[in-house]
């Protein structure tokens, strides 16, 4: 939860505040700067080298896991993963054992079934709330907004037992519904805050113009604001996705056996198989696979979303 937790929050705040030093004519200069940058790029070989060395060092622990996941049980216990570099003996056995024998494939489906609604629902709700906070004047609006923002201080751990009580009372404990609902609740304060800042960035003249044309709130929301917010939604979507996919806490507390996602299943492998590092390393890499693909695939949107929020004009 830590990693994505941080990131979600920072995106939020970042978009709220990075704007200070940035002024209007930014976009027009951009093209020019690109050209200069291209020239400069070649002139910084030392910086490039250091940057790459650090990046490689940063990746070594992950590489270690990747290599380990292809090694045999005895090799993992008996020698360091780096010895595999000189003496490669790779086999997909661990992955087969993890996916087929330990049935992580079905947990993969669960992770998917949990993640999609748990990303869509809070984003939709947060968009609506953010719209209300940004464009519908009502009494106590600021107070309510600050209260919602401040709810970030509630540590998730605190909520688990009371929520579990509620779910059991309602007779829905253990189902996918409780997992979707819980993720949605926990995501809302951040999502509302972040999306509110993006909403605020939209020039009021656009909204006013639409209002003059007689458009209602729903029309303004869908026709005017939503198209402008796509990068922001993508940026938040990536983080919410990472958060839900990597979550262990909510899953362990609320998901029953049939709904257990990948993270919990891998953690459970650790619990039940003890020293089965061969399964763990393969399982851990499987859990990382989808977030990595999603992140690398959507990185462009994500950075654009950050930038869009930080250079509002």
């Amino acid at each position: 939860m830590t990693a994505s937790d941080v990131s979600q929050r920072t995106v939020t705040n970042a978009t709220g505040k990075i704007d200070a030093p940035v002024q209007g004519s930014w976009r027009s200069r951009r093209r020019q700067r690109r050209a200069e940058a291209a020239a400069e790029r070649l002139s910084k070989p030392a910086a490039s080298t250091i940057a790459i060395i650090i990046a490689v060092l940063w990746s070594v622990p992950t590489l270690g896991l990747f290599v380990t996941s292809f090694r045999t049980v005895d090799d993992i216990q008996g020698s360091g993963w780096w010895t595999a570099v000189t003496n490669p003996l790779f086999s997909p056995f661990n992955y087969r054992a993890a996916l087929v024998d330990s049935d992580l494939a079905s947990n993969f489906i669960n992770s998917f079934a949990i993640t999609l609604p748990a990303v869509l629902i809070p984003i939709t709700l947060a968009l609506l709330a953010a719209y209300a906070f940004a464009w519908i004047p009502f009494r106590g609006r600021n107070t309510l907004f600050v209260a919602v923002f401040a709810l970030q201080i509630v540590p998730i751990q605190v909520t688990l037992v009371p929520l579990l009580n509620l779910y059991v009372g309602a007779g829905v404990a253990g189902s996918f519904w409780t997992v979707w609902l819980s993720h949605s609740m926990f995501a809302l304060p951040l999502a509302i805050f972040l999306l509110h800042n993006f909403m605020k960035d939209v020039p009021p003249s656009l909204v006013e113009a639409a209002r003059m044309d007689g458009a209602g709130h729903v029309t303004i929301f869908f026709k005017v604001l939503l198209p402008l917010l796509v990068p922001a939604i993508a940026a938040f979507g990536v983080f919410q996705f990472l958060w839900v996919w990597n979550d262990l806490l909510v899953a362990l507390t609320f998901a029953s056996n049939d709904a257990t996602p990948l993270t919990a299943a891998v953690a459970d492998l650790a619990g039940t198989r003890g020293n089965a590092w061969y399964l763990l390393s393969a399982g851990a890499f499987l859990t990382m696979l989808v977030p990595l693909v999603v992140f690398i695939g959507l990185q462009r949107f994500f950075v654009r979303g950050l930038l869009a929020g930080s250079v509002k004009g």
């Binding site: 806490l249 507390t253 039940t272």
Partner: peptide, 25 residues
């Protein structure tokens, strides 16, 4: 005892809230 290991990251719940992962494993 049987349901925890150091690896099981964030496992507080397996161990505690969620209780024993499995008695008979």
């Amino acid at each position: 005892k049987r349901s925890t290991t150091a690896v099981a990251g964030g496992l507080g719940l397996i161990v505690a809230l969620a209780g024993c992962a499995s008695q008979e494993e």
